[in-house]
Design a protein around this nucleic acid. Sequence first.
DNA 1: CTGAAAGCGCTTACAG
DNA 2: CTGAAAGCGCTTACAG
Lengths: 341, 341
Amino acid sequence: MGASLKDIACKLNLSKTTVSWVLSGQGDKKGISAETQSRVLACARSLAYEPNLLARSLNTGVSKTIGLILPSISDTFFAHIADRIESEAEREGYSLMIAGSNSEPERENALIRLFRSKKVDGIIIAPADASGREVGRLAESGCPVVLFDRCLAKTDAGCVVIDNEAGSHALVRHLAARGFRKIAIITTFPHLPTMELRHRGYLRALAEAGLHADPRLYGEVAYAGYRQHVCDTLDRILATVPDTDGFFFTTHILATEALRYFHDRGIDISDGRLGLACMHEDPLFRLAAPRMSVARFPVEEISAHAVRLLLRQIRESQSPGSVRPAPESVVLPCRMEFRDE
Amino acid sequence: MGASLKDIACKLNLSKTTVSWVLSGQGDKKGISAETQSRVLACARSLAYEPNLLARSLNTGVSKTIGLILPSISDTFFAHIADRIESEAEREGYSLMIAGSNSEPERENALIRLFRSKKVDGIIIAPADASGREVGRLAESGCPVVLFDRCLAKTDAGCVVIDNEAGSHALVRHLAARGFRKIAIITTFPHLPTMELRHRGYLRALAEAGLHADPRLYGEVAYAGYRQHVCDTLDRILATVPDTDGFFFTTHILATEALRYFHDRGIDISDGRLGLACMHEDPLFRLAAPRMSVARFPVEEISAHAVRLLLRQIRESQSPGSVRPAPESVVLPCRMEFRDE
DNA sequence: CTGAAAGCGCTTACAG
DNA sequence: CTGAAAGCGCTTACAG
């Protein structure tokens, strides 16, 4: 392995203390002679000294690492979030440990414990476990934690979400205003607050437009094997209510699969006879479904706020007379893009 | 913070040694009495003991963490790779530290040093620095390292790549066979071996088809601000050679931008008068450009091989009388999908 | 101006 | 069957 402080100290007949001070830039403050300092620096360079950050962390209790737990790393939304969070974190000197929960509470809880054991300074998580058991324990124990995308009612952790209800409502209201009457909703993970809010926005828009919320137009898709499930669900809805004239998708993943379904079934979505709307988006939606309206999620803001809230918590928890601050939460508006005008 | 071994030892009037042995499952082997063992276990549970993995790593020299350095975390290709690598790694008990180099050699080198300092057990990297200075140093110093996507000629690290030359060649040959004569190439990062191979495959296919490699049909796009650059480049090519009848894109990112360009310019790509081909793909290509042929990258295999090669190196480096094994490399074929028949 | 010493929380020879 | 001790590589009071 590489050289250690001790190696340098031995070689120079100095104490580890002196070497440590010089190398950590406290040479002047501690009054180490200029000559000694340059000797240390030169020796460190010649031995290609790199500090063992594990040792430093063990000593200081600060790992300069944050943990990020996502339902899926490859989902474009989460991948972009991870990208931005990594940049923001890195700018502040933090590295990122990342893991995918696959939306399984068991895995999520195991990952939380693992990250704590690895002594991350804080955790950013898009929780899959609506019960939030482990997340709650995390916050209680004083570990800095910020939730995003999905908030948990019970937990008093910091949280960053978009205004799901407003976004859904705006999309569905727009569909209704364009004259679509039988608007189906395709959704998943209905037990998550996020998804419930999107459903609620849909229902409110229907009610305001004087439309009946036909249960036959409710399509719920299980996450595992969702590709097939989307097809089955659309088949079922179109068979039961053949004159369905609109679809509201609660995620871009569901919309993507539905577009493939329409394409494969030869259902034309370009003539505007079908009203389409989707929470979040994909760069290619504009081409593959030019008339689908979307509520874009502000990925940059979400990431920036998440990191900001977490760093604030971390700083508070590391400063001496710290009282745990009231956890701050942020609700961000979607950027609406109505595309069928 | 949480309880430590010492806390348990004190509480039970035992030594840290005994507690450590019981908790690490060596109780029977070390002949600790059943009663002591259950007292330790019970106490650990009641104190919610979780081992400090930093301390363990510092002691054992094994961090059970691997570093992943990608040009971009949000690029769908790399995001999928990260997802798979994380799964594979987790299954073997490893966590993932992830970072984006933004294809900047300086950042990449800094990240490599940082990860080494954080004592990752090995690094998987899609190198941006064609010179491979830091990567070479890494391999020489005995740190397990596996490259993927982009190989470096000089380095003797393990490597996993697709057959770039064959994939490009097959795509362009196919375009030529369909009768397209003026096939442009749109590429980026031309100094990277990967991209050079894709260019070479293009050139070979042209030559074999008796087509002239018109330099005016060569479009090179800078990474920074590539959106605008793609448009400018296509503008330039179509202005210079108005009867350009084919486009070969060396990455899915470039193809995506080009599709937007065609869409915005009102250029019809659905009638088959323009031959299109692309290295890698996007799930929505089938809808947005149904006739574009693609060479799909085997993401799962790439990830599986990368992790496998890295773990092998890690095990060798950790086993006692280890001679550094000859670094193994893997070349995987693309999955061709010719879509315009 | 510089150093000896304790400690972060583990693991693991070594000793009894 | 159990424990005292050293060590992983740092940082940081404390002392001179």
